[in-house]
Nucleic acid binder design. Structure first.
Lengths: 210, 210
DNA sequence: CCTACCGATCGGTAGG
DNA sequence: CCTACCGATCGGTAGG
């Protein structure tokens, strides 16, 4: 008995990852999956990597979860929802389009900074979902895009923004700029998410020219 | 003999893809690999998918190529090089920073439009390379970033651009915006690459505000 | 949560 | 370029 326990602890140490102890749960598994998918992407992370990270054997994962894809679905949907929840109230508020855009950009960067790896999975790895689940994600992404479209269109109507020849492209370019932060944002870098969001908002609103 | 030939032709038709005939070559294999990696990403495309696409059996691929990773290396390096070749002469020319930036954005969109799938692989899938090759790619990406940094810094010095509080972030955001086109550019869409590049250049230079 | 295992698929090779 | 095959690894399960 004591020996068995020792072996198990050793194995966990060889797997090298889990903090001290605490019970394995679905939440812990999802947390480690977010980290691993975010670092190395869904298709190249094996269930054995995840089981190593939480300190159990591969087959035992299925006591807590249903399938690998189920992990991905949950991560992706929760991730996109956190962006919708943060930005919808801003986009739908009564303030000027200029202020709403600044606030939306700031909210985006704050969510991104507090959930960097989840964002990487949510925005780039939903493509690995099977087609039924992919459709649900596409709908959520459209809602997200519409929030920015609303702000831009309101700003054009009110005369705050110039008459964009193609607002759709402007929205996609703006979102593309924001999402690119998953590739260059560093929590240990010199600029806070707030400071970064000001740089990005200035770029989007004022542009580079003097 | 005739029967064997018939069977082979049938098998190729079942694989369903290859245009008529023509000899299989390393170039053909690379072309199909670009398409498949671009559509579904490197780790989930099997050598059997590639051999099906070119109409031979999996083992026969290795007459023409060395390894799966070798395919990826060639695609990624050729892809990035096409961007460097297009933009370096512009960034290093004697024109104003404003004009150089417009031209660089246009050149970027033209390369992207003529090699959309190769761009997807080059900019997002180099992370699947083993570490030695990854380092080479990182150096090429730095050179690419420096081309835009030069234009922006020149523009600030000359007084064409405003005094950006953080030019590095502005460059990363700009490149992020351009690269996001791999996710939304459609060759069958209404706007030409030239038209798109004008929209993007206006956004980057003038911004959204009136 | 482990033991013990499953069929399927992976990139790649020897020998012709 | 095919035939025939390799060891390794994959996600997942039965039974305790």
């Amino acid at each position: 008995m004591a020996k068995q326990r020792e072996l198990r602890v050793t194995r966990q140490r060889e797997r090298g990852t889990r903090a001290a102890s605490g019970p394995v749960s679905a939440e812990l598994i999802e947390r480690e999956a977010i980290r691993l998918f975010g670092e190395r992407t869904y298709p190249v992370v094996g269930m054995r990597d995840i089981s190593d990270a939480v300190g159990i054997l591969p087959g035992s994962l299925y006591v807590h979860i249903n399938s690998k894809e189920d992990l991905l679905i949950k991560i992706v949907e929760r991730g996109i929802r956190s962006y919708l929840d943060a930005i919808a109230p801003i986009a739908e508020s009564e303030q000027s389009a200029t202020i709403r855009l600044r606030k939306a950009i700031k909210a985006h960067m704050l969510v991104l900074a507090t959930a960097l790896e989840q964002t990487r999975v949510s925005f780039h790895q939903w493509t690995y979902l099977s087609s039924e689940h992919k459709e649900r994600v596409i709908l959520m992404r459209q809602r997200y895009e519409e929030l920015f479209s609303r702000i831009l269109n309101d700003g054009i109507s009110s005369g705050e923004f110039r008459d964009l020849s193609n607002p759709r492209i402007a929205v996609l370019a703006l979102i593309g700029m924001l999402n690119s932060a998953t590739e260059w944002y560093s929590p240990t870098g010199p600029l806070s998410p707030e400071a970064l969001s000001e740089v990005l908002a200035d770029n989007a609103l004022i542009g580079l020219q003097k």
